[in-house]
């Protein structure tokens, strides 16, 4: 068997693992139940809340991630290594721990002040967005940094010798050349936020029709032994995420093919 075939076999085996898990949902699947569920105000609320919260999360995450990733990609500065390491915090600290850290912060004098004078986060929709931002920010900075790393520094260098300030060089040359990668990073961040559970449930709780995102809905239905309901929520979540990922890939398809 050629090396090419072995690698393809590995790729297919991954599809089989996830495909098998998705297919297993069929054991508890009922079309009628799913159709009734999709029409129910509770699941519609969860869909709307999940999409809205993930979209707001992505908006704020990218606003923070783009300049931060650019700095990490282009400049050397004191503490760069610490920042770089901390960005991996969401990767090695469980989302529940991140959520617990947010809750603990809101019990400190600074957190109490924020909740009292700026915005109540704990057990609210704002808490969902905050928890998602904390959970996905590190990953989105990593993704965006990888995009900037791919764009040669020489473009900015030449732009500057042609009279552009660092910001003009960034906005007229780097950013337009990074848009495909930035879009992909945005979509992946969004998908990650839509499926976020641990931090969300710790900060915002499980309040039906209030802080019930799709992952929270799955948890709540499982907890009340509503397996068919949980399956319905899983299918809705998977369908939304896959559709977004598929259409974004379709929009910017091309590349990545190496002839053997």
């Amino acid at each position: 068997m050629t090396f090419k075939r072995v690698t393809i076999l590995f790729a297919i085996s991954i599809v089989l693992i996830y495909g098998g898990l998705i297919l297993s949902l069929y054991s508890f699947f009922s079309t009628e139940h799913l159709l009734n569920m999709i029409r129910s105000p509770r699941i519609l609320y969860s869909i709307r809340l999940s999409i809205a919260a993930a979209s707001i999360t992505v908006f704020f995450s990218m606003i923070l991630a783009v300049p931060a990733a650019f700095a990490l990609s282009r400049y050397n500065f004191a503490g760069k290594r610490i920042v770089d390491t901390l960005l991996e915090l969401p990767l090695f600290v469980s989302p529940a721990a991140l959520g617990a850290m947010i809750l603990i912060f809101f019990n400190t004098p600074a957190g109490v002040w924020v909740q009292g004078n700026i915005q109540q986060f704990v057990f609210t929709v704002y808490g969902i967005v905050l928890a998602q931002i904390i959970a996905v920010l590190g990953i989105s900075v990593r993704l965006v940094k990888a995009v900037f790393d791919e764009i040669p520094l020489r473009y900015e260098a030449v732009a500057r010798t042609l009279g552009a300030s660092p910001f003009r060089a960034f906005s007229t040359v780097t950013l337009p050349n990074a848009y495909k990668g930035l879009f992909a990073a945005t979509v992946l961040t969004w998908a990650k936020a839509v499926g976020e559970f641990g931090a969300t449930v710790t900060v915002a709780g499980t309040i039906a029709m209030r802080t019930e995102t799709l992952p929270v809905s799955i948890y709540m239905r499982l907890a009340s032994a509503d397996i068919e309901g949980a399956v319905g929520s899983i299918i809705v979540l998977i369908t939304i995420s896959l559709l977004v990922l598929y259409f974004s890939r379709l929009l910017f398809s091309g590349g990545g093919y190496v002839r053997s």
């Binding site: 030449v158 732009a159 010798t161 337009p176």
Partner: peptide, 20 residues
């Protein structure tokens, strides 16, 4: 002096024509 203020044009090896 900043590069944008020098009025010195620079052509790197790969020319760095802006792809966009």
């Amino acid at each position: 002096t900043l590069p944008e203020k020098r009025k010195i044009a620079y052509l790197p090896q790969d020319l760095a024509l802006f792809p966009n």
